[in-house]
Design a protein around this nucleic acid. Structure first.
Lengths: 234, 234
DNA sequence: CATTATATTTTTGTATACAATTTTCTTGAC
DNA sequence: GTCAAGAAAATTGTATACAAAAATATAATG
């Protein structure tokens, strides 16, 4: 069955933005993108509408659409919200998780552990994501699962760019196991707390990273805005 | 500043869908809507893209866009997620709320109480919404606030259609006060639990409503896809 | 009459044309 | 050289034209 061109474009643009293909605040050139995708402006513009609604892009009337990467402050908030969302998932999962789902969690954990031993960060990230997603699923609330997954994806690039302090991965794995234990015991409050702090660590680490480096702030000022110098949004 | 036509259309359509202007599963006729808004199809279609991303509408290739009202099962999930989101807001608010914000909460509560006494449901709903929104704000996390607000708006029509059991409003007001007390004391765990169950009650009530009436199920079978009536919806 | 095949109409998806607005470039005065 | 005013170019927003697909109507066959 034929797929709408616009839908493909949404996915691709989403990927491009999430992987940092565009500089922050960069204007997305309709015409260039249309040529790049080999279509007219119309489907590109329709994709823009969707992207704006999902928060990846900001649209300013008669000026254009600009990538809208969250700044340090916003990222800290998003990590905190992520921690709360996951805590909620864990709370519900502790009451509803099935034996199969528990096994899947343990399996993901085992692969994760192996990846840590082998210093294989690709495997680690993939299986870590599976672990978290399984918990969202186990909440038994598909709406919550969807929202958690959405935010996870949004934060993925920033999670990945965090520095991996020596020993943090081992510590992280221990936390995973403690979380599974709480879920297995049906201790919802405990599972909730453990998962919250597990995720919150990432936010804090990110915060430190930002505070130390002032990386993003610099990027924002000197940012490689292509042509127009002062046409940054907001 | 000139506002894009498309943006106004999004807002209006959103309102129309949320207030039940369209039957569930009804196809939105591009041409009719374009005429109704006095524009061409283009801005209407751009609005559709946004609506789909916000989940109010489903787009099927070469078939059209259809209103997508959540069914009973999905609504129960959404209320549960709402409870968890609000619980998270309360948890954070208990640690961060300011004196001013506490006063604002108390004020909203007082007006709410008055509305209950006068059997003024409009005032009640408005001030109740303010109360909840103030807690989102007091979480100090604008991302969380935004998400909670979004879901609140999505659920608004269903919250409103709940039957108001005698005495429930009084009980609800007591819960509000208990929540404020917990926030004032900085007891985050308590505030969180209280707000969660306060909201969860709505979900349960809705669940009962559905189970008793089978209203939505009937609507879904018989209601949808009204053949194109003659002229504009006016 | 039912059923299937075909033609007609309608509707969606995309391209293009055009108007409105902003940005950039040019010119001229000081 | 700097700045302002205005023309030119570029870009966005909307309307329209056209192509592709689906829905509907019509005809043909048994």
């Amino acid at each position: 069955m034929e797929i709408r061109r616009a839908d493909k474009i949404v996915e691709e643009l989403e990927q491009m933005i999430l992987t940092g293909e565009f500089a922050n605040g960069e204007r997305l050139n309709e015409i260039r993108l249309a040529e790049w995708f080999g279509v007219s402006r119309t489907p590109v513009r329709e994709a823009f509408q969707k992207l704006e609604m999902s928060g990846l892009v900001e649209q300013i009337p008669h000026r254009g659409v600009f990538t809208r990467q969250p700044g340090p402050a916003e990222l800290v908030e998003m990590f905190e919200a992520m921690a709360e969302l996951e805590a909620a998932c864990a709370r519900l999962a502790a009451m509803r998780i099935s034996a199969d789902q528990l096994n899947a969690l343990r399996k993901a954990n085992a692969i994760c552990q192996e990846a840590v031993s082998n210093n294989n960060s690709d495997d680690y990230y993939r299986e870590n994501e599976r672990f978290h997603h399984l918990i969202y699923q186990s909440s038994g609330n598909s709406y919550l699962e969807q929202e958690a997954t959405r935010l996870y994806k949004r934060l993925r690039p920033f999670r990945r760019m965090q520095l991996q302090l020596r020993g943090r991965l081992q510590q992280s794995m221990k936390e995973h196991e403690a979380i599974v234990a709480a879920l297995a015991d049906g201790k919802s409050s405990q599972a909730s707390k453990r998962l919250r702090s597990h995720v919150a660590v990432q936010g804090e680490k990110f915060h430190h990273l930002m505070a130390n480096m002032r990386l993003v702030a610099k990027q924002r000022e000197t940012g490689p805005l292509k042509k127009s110098a002062n046409s940054s949004p907001k």
